[in-house]
Simulated assay, not measured.
Amino acid sequence: MRRRTLALLAPALLAAPALSACGRAAGTAGTPGAAPAGEGATVYPRQIANCEAELLVPAIPQRVLLLESASVTILDALGVLPAVIGRAGSFPAGYYDADLAARIAEIPALSEDIDASGHLMISAEMVIAQSPDLVLGLPDGLTREGLADAGAQVLIPEAYCTAGEPASLDDLGAQISVYGEIFDRPGRAAEVWEQLSARIADARERAAALPRRTAAVLYPSVGGGPLYAYGAASMATPQLAAAGLDNVFAASAERVFEVGAEALLAADPDVLILLHQGQEDAAVIDEVRAVAGLDALAALAAGAVLPMLFNFTEPASPLIVDGLTRILDLREGLPA
């Protein structure tokens, strides 16, 4: 499974003056395709480095097309979700509170075709027909060059194109800062990161009271396909560390890789985090159990298993802080 296509696996923060204790605030209203005014801090045109490419942003984007779901919470936190004119892929309501879920449902859906491995299926013609000026995500079949020729710049989560570099929770702050720069919301971006940082610090304090354990983060393919694990370049590793867990595959420099039953049994993690695209929890667990031999995993026997929507761990977005809280909730409910 390639890094770029994993960006479309579907494996919140909102736009008001202040966030609540859980990291959300009231959403912004507005006409799709009309981004609110910026802070006047960004000089346009602006060049933005992204995944070994350069975006040339001529002005605050007004027609944004979502081809991956993680960007939603950053856009909403900055107050620029009204700029989104369309979406494609899977946007499970389980990621969002009721208000944000309702506003996402109002955004026109171009395609919800996801293959068994979680990859978005959409044509370049359909994307170009929307006349976007900024496209978030780059599924197979689309190219930066082709979209640039049609007047659209492309932004990809850095996590999907940074090879061999260990991930850090600070990557979340960096990602939010990039969006703040693009949409002329640097002050708001700094506020969002400050409040998320406080939540991460609280989570680490909770984790300090728990015994150190091991864990693995897996993505079981639907229908008995390959099983994938996440290594050092994935946000899974620093997220687990903040929850007081050591990733048994942290020695792998890769972000994600196919893992066999033998390697997983040898690692025998205390906790399993199972990422998915919106399947029933029991079905996701059954996908793992269906792999010959994995019933012997200690985590399965102990019930130390957490099925979780993909964006709660990958890529860097405010949702990973929600995912961190979920992991800690599981840990605190397990026997010492």
Score class of each variant (00 low, 15 high):
M235G: 12
A116Q: 14
P61N: 05
A77R: 13
V80P: 01
D170Y: 02
G293Q: 11
A242M: 01
A70L: 01
F91N: 05
V271W: 08
L110I: 14
L55R: 10
M121I: 09
A148I: 07
L67C: 10
D113G: 05
A88F: 02
E287Y: 11
P226N: 04
L319Y: 15
L240W: 02
L328E: 07
R4E: 14
P92I: 06
R188K: 15
H119C: 10
I273F: 01
P108I: 02
E112G: 15
Y230L: 08
A105Q: 08
E125L: 05
L334A: 04
V284E: 04
R24P: 11
P132F: 10
A16S: 15
A263G: 12
I176P: 04
D170H: 02
T5A: 11
L240N: 11
L78R: 05
R326A: 06
A98P: 10
H276S: 03
V248R: 09
G260R: 00
P238E: 03
E191C: 07
L8N: 12
P45V: 04
G33I: 13
D202P: 03
V127K: 06
E191F: 10
L245C: 08
S131A: 09
L319R: 15
F249A: 10
A109T: 14
Y228S: 03
I104D: 09
A167K: 07
A296T: 02
G141W: 04
L172H: 04
C161F: 00
A232F: 02
I74P: 03
M308H: 05
A7C: 09
R144P: 07
T42Q: 04
A299E: 07
G137N: 11
M121E: 11
E262P: 00
T162W: 03
Y179F: 15
Q279V: 00
A290K: 04
D270C: 00
D184K: 13
R199F: 15
Y228D: 01
M235N: 11
A292R: 08
A105F: 14
V259W: 04
A304R: 03
A105D: 13
L65H: 09
P318D: 01
N247G: 00
L67R: 10
A167Y: 13
R2G: 15
A304W: 02
A208L: 14
S90N: 13
A301M: 05
P32F: 14
Y96Q: 01
R188Q: 08
A203M: 01
A93M: 10
L272S: 00
R185V: 08
G79F: 12
E194R: 08
T28V: 14
A251G: 14
L324G: 08
I60E: 02
D133M: 04
